Simulated assay, not measured.
Amino acid sequence: MRSLRVIGIGTGNPEHLTLQAVRALAEVDVVFALDKGAETADLLALRRSICAAHIAKPHRFVALEDPARDRRPADYGGTVEAWHQARADRLEEAIRDQLGAGEVGAILVWGDPSLYDSTLRVLERIRAAGRLDLAWTVIPGITSVQALTAAHAILLNRIGADVLVTTGRNLAAQGLTADSTVVMLDGDPSFDQFDPDLTIYWGAYLGSPDEILISGRLGTVAPEIRRRRTEARARHGWIMDTYLLRRP
């Protein structure tokens, strides 16, 4: 039996690690990480620094090239399924070759493993293939939703009101259906279709030294958000942002 820890590490601040995560890391022999290349090298570097800080015993850091995928596919569902399978194949091979009997492996997940992350789906694919005897435990982490509301010092919900957590793709297709809507994974935000009197709470690189926060009336601050977002993406080569839209 091979054993894995799937550990949520928060959104960029090393102090986001819980005490449970720190204890789990102390027992790890091998850390597996999917490497998206030079543009996101700082995300891989943060994982390495967390390991160096909290794994005192000798350990191995195994970086795997993340399979490429089409970001604007005609068949979104089919493309993501194929991408998950490619990840599963790559990770299964690495676990088989790098994680010995009696050793403990770990995968460090940005945010929390339960929210818009594919790690658990990928591991289920490996288990279903039946070639590896694999078990894992999940250690929760701080999500970008929590980091966003904390940074703006606001409540996620209003009294008795609903909250929807969705993606930019779904928001564009379905519109606003909840009192408060948290939007993640929005590669090309388009605010013009919505009521300009909505309130927006936007944040990028949450929890990190590069954090950017903007809030206010949507019709007033949307141009500034677009400008700051474009500048930040050009400077870093990538952007990870989240925002909350709230009805008047």
Rank of each mutant, 00 (worst) to 15 (best):
T137A: 14
H152P: 02
I142H: 02
T167R: 02
A147Q: 04
V163Q: 10
V165Q: 04
Q146F: 01
A135Q: 14
A153L: 06
L132I: 13
D162N: 14
L171D: 00
L176G: 06
A129Q: 15
T177M: 04
A151V: 09
A135E: 14
V163D: 09
A172Y: 04
L156K: 13
I154Q: 08
A178T: 05
P140V: 04
T143V: 12
V182T: 14
V165T: 12
L132E: 03
A150G: 04
V138R: 01
I139G: 05
W136Y: 13
R131M: 00
L176N: 09
A147D: 11
V163P: 03
T137N: 13
G141W: 14
A172V: 09
V138I: 08
S144H: 00
G160W: 12
D133K: 00
R158C: 01
Q174M: 07
I159G: 03
I154T: 07
L171H: 07
G130S: 03
Q174D: 04
T149R: 07
D162E: 10
T177L: 07
L164D: 07
T143K: 01
A172H: 10
G141V: 12
R131Q: 10
T143P: 03
R169I: 15
A151R: 09
D179C: 01
V145N: 03
H152W: 03
W136P: 07
L134F: 06
D179S: 03
V165Y: 03
T181Y: 03
G168C: 05
A178I: 05
L164P: 00
H152Q: 03
T181C: 11
Q146I: 01
L171V: 09
A172L: 14
S144C: 14
A153K: 15
A172P: 00
Q174T: 11
